[in-house]
Each structure stands twice: as structure tokens, then as C-alpha cells.
């Protein structure tokens, strides 16, 4: 699907190349550029949170405000969506939000690798969240958790259909959670690279080089839009995690 011409290959950015081959028990667990960028993301988050909260002076410096602001933002989302009982999951939701947000941000820097643009990474997140919801739901509510699939106030004739519909919508949650993040990141980065390809194409085409700045302006606008999408995807991921945890905490919605 990559366009002609060796220079322009928007798909190349998603190739995983092995840095340090390593196989544990036959499983190819080699250290790839994806894992390298995951380590970089964790380092950035750890740096911000640890240094940010170490200062403890009353007038917060920039880093401390960043740390406090992100904490406040996620805490208010969790409280508002999953209520006080949801705060038990706050550390998990906070780390998911920060990891997804910083991986999207770092992915926007040219020549970096976007971890969340791999379907397997986002699906791992979504599958873990849904398993957590199921485990906690059954642990806390036992079989009552199943009346999540039986909404109250439904005439018995319709019940089998409604239950089937609820099961389908519950089964579609991990898929919608992971494919949304994956598709937005993939599409955003492919568009950026394709516009980049336009610039190089136009520059190399003699008199048309005058048109080259147009796609460049396009890239600037697209990058701004990608920044908004990066934040929004992390926010939607976090708020949906809270909504699903809220379903686990009190199933009878």
C-alpha cells in the first residue's frame, strides 16, 4: 500500500526493528524500538512526577504545577464518573492516562516511534481493563454483577433481546476502547507522513517547488490538531475506564 518512490513510505514509521534480540523460553521477547520508547515514556513520566512532587515549596515551580495539574485533572474525572468508590482505582487510571498521553505526545516528535499506534499495545490495555472490570465485578458483587446485563424496568417479552443487546455492547467495549485509540493514532501519523511526502515531492519537481510551503502549512495545522487528538484520546481512554469500573462497582445502573 506504500506509494511509489522510495522516499515516501508513510507505513515505514510503524515497522518494529529489533535492537537487542532476546528469547526467553522460545518466546521472542527481544528488546525492540517499541520497548525502547516505552522505557523512554516511563522515564519521562517518572521524572515529571518524582521531581515535580519532591520540591514541596509553597509557590510551585513549573514542574510541580504540571504534576499537580495532571493529578487534579484525573482525580476530578474519576470522582465525577466513578464516584468516591472509584478512587480505589485512581492509581491505575492515572498511570493509564499518563502513559497513553505521553506516548501520543512523544510519538508526535519526528523520527520517534508511537507506542500506541500498535494495535497489540492498545488491545493489551483494553483487555486488561475489561478483565479487571470482570474480576472486580464478580469479586465485589458476586452473581449480582450479572444484572448489569438486565437493565431494570424492561418488559419481560423484550428481556431476551435486551440481554443479548447488553452482552453485545459489553463485548464491544474492549474492541471500541482499543480500536479507537489505535485508529486515531495510526490515521493521524499516516496523514502527517503523507503530507511530509508531498513536501519532498514538490521540492524535487522543479518549478512546482514554489508550491512546497503549502503542504508544510498543512503539516503545521495537522500537528496542532494531532496534539488535541493526542490529549483527547488519552482523556477518552481514561474516562471510559472510569465508566467501565463504575459499572463494576455498582452494576445495577
Amino acid at each position: 500500500m506504500s506509494e511509489a518512490g522510495p522516499a515516501i513510505d508513510p507505513i515505514h514509521q510503524f515497522h518494529i526493528n529489533v535492537i537487542a534480540p532476546l528469547s526467553i523460553g522460545g518466546v521472542d521477547a527481544s528488546f525492540t524500538n517499541a520497548s525502547l520508547f516505552m522505557v523512554i515514556i516511563l522515564a519521562v513520566i517518572a521524572f515529571i512526577m518524582l521531581v515535580g512532587t519532591s520540591g514541596e515549596h509553597i509557590v510551585p515551580n513549573r514542574l510541580q504545577t504540571l504534576a499537580e495539574m495532571s493529578y487534579e485533572f484525573v482525580a476530578s474525572t474519576v470522582r465525577q464518573t466513578a464516584g468516591e468508590a472509584g478512587m480505589k482505582f485512581f492509581p491505575f487510571v492515572f498511570s493509564v492516562f499518563m502513559f497513553v498521553f505521553f506516548s501520543n505526545l512523544i510519538g508526535l516528535v519526528p523520527y520517534t516511534f508511537t507506542v500506541t499506534s500498535q494495535i497489540i499495545v492498545t488491545f493489551a490495555f483494553a483487555a486488561f481493563i475489561i478483565l479487571l472490570v470482570l474480576a472486580y465485578g464478580f469479586y465485589k458483587n458476586g452473581t449480582h454483577f450479572l444484572n448489569l446485563f438486565v437493565p431494570s424496568g424492561v418488559s419481560p417479552i423484550l428481556l431476551p433481546f435486551i440481554v443479548l443487546i447488553e452482552i453485545i455492547s459489553f463485548a464491544s467495549r474492549p474492541i471500541s476502547l482499543s480500536v479507537r485509540l489505535f485508529a486515531n493514532m495510526l490515521a493521524g501519523h499516516i496523514t502527517l507522513k503523507v503530507f511530509g511526502g508531498f513536501v519532498t515531492l514538490l521540492l524535487g519537481a522543479g518549478v512546482y517547488a514554489l508550491l512546497a510551503p503549502l503542504p508544510l502549512i498543512g503539516i503545521v495545522l495537522l500537528t496542532a490538531f494531532e496534539l488535541l487528538v493526542a490529549f483527547l484520546q488519552a482523556y477518552v481512554f481514561a474516562i471510559l475506564t472510569c465508566v467501565y469500573l463504575n459499572d463494576a462497582i455498582h452494576p445495577g445502573h
Partner: peptide, 25 residues
């Protein structure tokens, strides 16, 4: 804008995912 766009993203993916999952099952 942020609120509306996040609502839009959620609606889009929930709509598509529900139908795809229904078809797959």
C-alpha cells in the same frame, strides 16, 4: 469543543464496534 469531540469519538467507536462485534459473533 474538547467535551464534544470526546463525545464524538466515543459515539463513533461504540457504534462501529457494536456492529462489527455483532457481525463477528
Amino acid at each position: 469543543l474538547g467535551q464534544a469531540m470526546s463525545l464524538g469519538f466515543r459515539v463513533l467507536s461504540e457504534f462501529v464496534a457494536a456492529i462489527v462485534v455483532g457481525a463477528l459473533i
